[in-house]
């Protein structure tokens, strides 16, 4: 590991480490600003941010397509030339040769990987096409593929070899709901097999459903990163009660030790570790007419709004 010594004191279990990663484009625009990112191995890591927040530039720097102005990044603790054959990538949408078939396109990109054994190319390409459900269209020219098929072919290209890390930039772009579900299932399956998945998205709900970890970018800066639990953990789970006896309900909740009791259209409070069913029983026991009872877990959207005080897509 001479040229590819991992930078700094990064833990060996990190799939991606960046330190002070900065990209200033000519003209002075700062696309990525002093990014310190750590993606643990084995995680499904959501890289969130509005369009134009520097996600794609970060991914391009990770893949060595764009040189950082300052700072460093390392993949799998290896030099880039050693790491890239173990990394599958989807960057800013699919790009293929329109006059070649799907299969011939994959053969082309497989040939570009100096570590890929030519002998098993046919078999690996077949498997990759099979995994994304494109076997039937393997011989069709890319020109005639639908947007969804193009996206799947790009994912197949990222799965050509045994990968330790998948970097997927907006993998569900252009897919219909069915295709989106399939991609989510595929990501889960890949992650279950031990591959780290780094997935960028501007869709909060998507990241919430797929990821174990997340980072949030905003105008080139990292706003937050951590496990999904830690990210939303700070905002406590609340109960919300629909009742005509609001004042009485609020009294009972306060008496039970629930905090941040608010009375509005309905009555809500943070659970503070109480079991919701006991809270409900106590309310009913005190004669409060409970019409509706809900446990509200904080969503990433709440976290994002809490962090920035703004809606998610405002920077788009």
């Amino acid at each position: 590991m001479e040229a590819g010594a991992p930078i700094g004191a990064s833990p060996p279990s990190a799939a991606i480490v960046t330190s002070g990663l900065t990209k200033r484009f000519r003209g002075g625009q700062v696309a990525v600003d002093a990014l310190d990112l750590t993606v643990p191995r084995g995680s499904v890591f959501g890289f969130l941010g509005p369009n134009g927040s520097g996600k794609t530039t970060t991914i391009r720097m990770l893949l060595g397509l764009v040189a950082p102005t300052e700072g460093e990044c390392s993949l799998l603790g290896l030099s880039r030339a050693e790491a890239l054959p173990r990394v599958g990538a989807l960057v800013e949408g699919p790009a293929f040769y329109p006059y070649l078939s799907g299969e011939a396109n994959l053969r082309r990109f497989d040939a570009a990987d100096p570590t890929a054994p030519a002998g098993t190319a046919r078999q690996r390409i077949g498997q990759a096409l099979d995994r994304v459900g494109l076997s039937a269209a393997a011989g069709k020219r890319y020109r005639n593929y639908s947007l969804g098929m193009r996206q799947r072919l790009a994912i197949a290209a990222a799965l050509l070899g045994p990968r330790e890390l998948l970097i997927l930039d907006e993998p569900t772009n252009g897919l219909d709901p069915q295709g989106t579900r399939e991609v989510r299932a595929l990501v889960k399956e890949i992650a279950a097999a031990g591959t780290t998945v780094f997935v960028s998205s501007h869709l909060l709900a998507e990241v919430e459903q797929m990821c174990t970890h997340a980072a949030i970018m905003r105008t080139g800066q990292l706003v937050a990163q951590g496990t999904m639990a830690s990210l939303s953990g700070g905002r406590a789970t609340r109960v919300r009660i629909d009742t005509p006896d609001a004042a009485e309900a609020a009294r009972v909740l306060t008496g039970l030790g629930l905090a941040d009791v608010r009375v509005g259209d309905d009555v809500s409070a943070t659970l503070e570790g109480h079991a919701p069913e006991k809270v409900n029983a106590a309310l009913v026991g005190e004669g409060v007419a409970v019409r509706g009872f809900a446990v509200v877990r904080p969503s990433l959207e709440d976290v994002f709004v809490g962090l920035t005080g703004e809606g998610f897509d405002v920077d788009g």
Partner: peptide, 25 residues
């Protein structure tokens, strides 16, 4: 409510030791 970055690092370290990655192809 945000977990500082440093804590994320240590939580990563708490994971069970990964097998040493095989030699680069």
């Amino acid at each position: 409510g945000l977990v500082p970055v440093a804590e994320t690092l240590s939580s990563a370290e708490r994971r069970p030791a990964e097998p040493v990655p095989p030699l680069p192809p």
